[in-house]
Simulated scan of single mutants.
Amino acid sequence: MRRVALIALLTFLLDQASKIAVVWGLNLAERGEIDVVPPYLSFHMAWNRGVNFGLGSSTGDLMRWVLVALALGISAWVWRWIAREGHGPWARASAGLLIGGALGNVVDRLAYGAVADFLNMSCCGIENPYAFNVADIAIFLGAVGLVLFTAESPKPRSGRRKTP
């Protein structure tokens, strides 16, 4: 479980460092938008009070605390599941990404009341109206990794046959 803890910690630190550097260091919270490599990458400040793409967002505090509890509950469940089932290194790395990302967004909700999203990528004449952050990327990659690397594999067959 050291791999899970280490990857979760590194993911959490990278997420929080990127938010501090961009949102506060570059003053994106006040500036609202910074073109980095237009039109492909820009920073757009968005305070997300809901889940992905702002779904379930509300101005009330109830949703904030529901989402904090949900993220903590899912993180604890994933930790226990990976520990108990004895999955391989890729599954453990995926669990670390998911847990670290979820905890990064939990800290935002506790500190600011919303998740700080700022990354925006567009391409080829298609303008993406949504912003995301490092934690969102980690959660997505972790979830995909858990699906891919925890699928049941056939149990090894023994050399003996059972007789009826």
Rank of each mutant, 00 (worst) to 15 (best):
S58M: 06
L141H: 06
E33L: 13
G50L: 01
A29M: 03
A138I: 01
G96C: 02
R84I: 00
W77S: 08
L9T: 13
S42D: 04
P156V: 11
I7Q: 05
E85S: 15
L103M: 14
E30Q: 15
A8V: 07
L110V: 15
Y130D: 02
E33W: 13
D136H: 07
P38C: 09
E152L: 11
C124G: 12
M1S: 11
R92H: 13
K155G: 07
P39S: 09
W65A: 11
A69T: 06
T163D: 10
E152N: 11
S75Y: 05
W65L: 10
L148W: 12
G159L: 12
S153V: 13
D35T: 06
D117R: 03
V68N: 02
L10C: 14
L55E: 02
W47P: 00
H44L: 10
P164V: 04
R160L: 11
N27F: 05
L110C: 12
R160F: 11
N48Y: 06
S58G: 15
W90S: 06
A114I: 00
C123Y: 13
R80A: 12
R109W: 11
A93K: 02
L119H: 06
F149W: 08
G56S: 04
S153Y: 01
P39V: 11
N133G: 06
M63G: 08
R64S: 09
F43G: 04
D136F: 03
T150W: 07
A138P: 03
D61Q: 13
G159E: 10
S153R: 14
P39Y: 10
C124P: 08
I34D: 00
L97Q: 04
L6H: 00
A135Q: 05
